[in-house]
């Protein structure tokens, strides 16, 4: 079973992107679960969402405590210890980050080699393509670069199911671009 934890702020589409990943994986015949860290939505407050993916039916119905992958939609959250909390040893962090990649270790407060880290200038790309700083779908593209959990085509299908015409098209462009511009920090 693969567990992904999404970090963002209320209003950034954290739960939506977790659902998009789940919908895409579901198209490929696996079992999925997607849920938010439950609470009343507050715009701007740090929020979490979780995606579980498995070849077997998923029995667990608790929150995710030891994720395999953490995705961060909003770089202003990077200083928080919540980001790496419980992340499995050798786990993956995929984050929205536009600064010099080597600075990421200081920002996260971790040392080299603890985790695999991928960065994507998601806010810049979202502003270019969507004209709004909504980074959730960009970070889905970044996640695919870090870990090929699901095919790009399945993600596009899920996006088309979730969003109407031109909004879906723009988000698909954004996912492609974010995929291309995501780099592993060496």
């Amino acid at each position: 079973m693969l567990e992904v934890r999404w970090h963002g702020r209320g209003g950034q589409g954290v739960w939506t992107v977790s659902n998009l990943l789940a919908m895409a994986v579901s198209l490929e015949g696996k079992y999925v679960q997607s849920f938010p860290a439950f609470g009343p939505e507050r715009s701007g407050a740090p929020v979490l969402a979780f995606t579980r993916i498995s070849d077997e039916p998923i029995e667990v119905h608790s929150m995710v405590y030891e994720p395999d992958i953490v995705v961060v939609l909003d770089y202003t959250l990077l200083g928080s210890p919540a980001i790496t909390h419980g992340l499995k040893k050798g786990g993956v962090i995929v984050t929205n980050f536009e600064d010099e990649p080597s600075k990421i270790y200081d920002v996260l407060g971790i040392s080299r080699g603890e985790y695999r880290i991928f960065t994507c200038p998601a806010t810049k790309l979202a502003l270019e393509i969507l004209k709004r700083a909504i980074t959730n779908t960009a970070m889905l593209g970044a996640l695919l670069k870090a870990s090929p959990i699901v095919s790009m085509d399945s993600v596009f299908e899920a996006v088309k199911e979730r969003f109407p015409g031109t909004i879906a098209e723009k988000n698909i462009d954004l996912i492609k671009k974010a995929y291309e511009e995501t780099r592993e920090v060496k």
Partner: peptide, 11 residues
């Protein structure tokens, strides 16, 4: 169960 099922997407 509220949230654990009501707000959890499964296929």
């Amino acid at each position: 169960d509220g949230f654990f099922l009501s707000h959890t997407l499964e296929n």
